Amino acid sequence: MARFLFCSFALVLLYPSGIDMYLVGLPHIAADLHASEAQLHIAFSVYLAGMATAMLIAGRLADKAGRQPVAICGAIVFALASVLCANATTSSLFLAGRFIQGTGAGCCYVVAFAILRDTLDDRRRAKVLSLLNGITCIVPVLAPVIGHLIMLRFPWQSLFWVMTGMGVIVCLLSTLVLKESHPGTQASQYSAQPLASESLTSRFFISRVIMTTLSVTAILTYVNISPVLLMEVLQFDRGEYSTIMALTALISMVVAFSTPFALTRFSQRTLMLVAQGLLFAAALVLASASSNAVMLFGLTLICSGFSLGFGVTMSQALSPFSQRAGVASSVLGIAQVCGSSLYIWLAAVSGVSALNMLIGSLISCSMVCILLITFVSARVDAPDHEKIPG
Rank of each mutant, 00 (worst) to 15 (best):
V70N: 09
L214V: 11
L178P: 04
V255S: 03
F113V: 06
I334W: 12
E386Q: 15
G102M: 06
V141T: 14
E386Y: 13
E232D: 15
P194D: 08
P227D: 10
A218P: 06
G25I: 00
F297S: 14
S199N: 11
T374G: 06
A10R: 01
S315W: 06
V110H: 06
S304M: 10
P16C: 00
L84D: 04
G147E: 01
L279S: 11
P140V: 02
V349Y: 05
I225E: 14
P16K: 00
R265E: 02
A75Y: 14
P140T: 03
S8W: 04
V285Q: 05
N292Q: 14
A293M: 13
I57Y: 13
G165H: 00
V233H: 15
A62E: 07
Q316W: 02
L129K: 07
Q68H: 05
A256P: 01
T259L: 01
L61N: 07
I42E: 15
V145R: 04
S315D: 07
P194L: 07
K179N: 04
V223I: 15
A249Y: 01
S353F: 03
C303N: 13
Q276H: 07
I135Y: 09
G102I: 05
P383C: 03
K179L: 03
L250K: 00
L214W: 11
P69Q: 08
R67H: 07
V128M: 12
S158H: 00
V46K: 10
S36Y: 02
S252M: 11
H41L: 08
L358M: 14
L142P: 05
R269S: 08
F78E: 15
V254G: 00
L56K: 08
A71Q: 11
G298P: 04
T53F: 14
Q336D: 10
S290V: 08
T175V: 12
V327S: 13
V312F: 01
S307D: 03
L234E: 15
T201N: 08
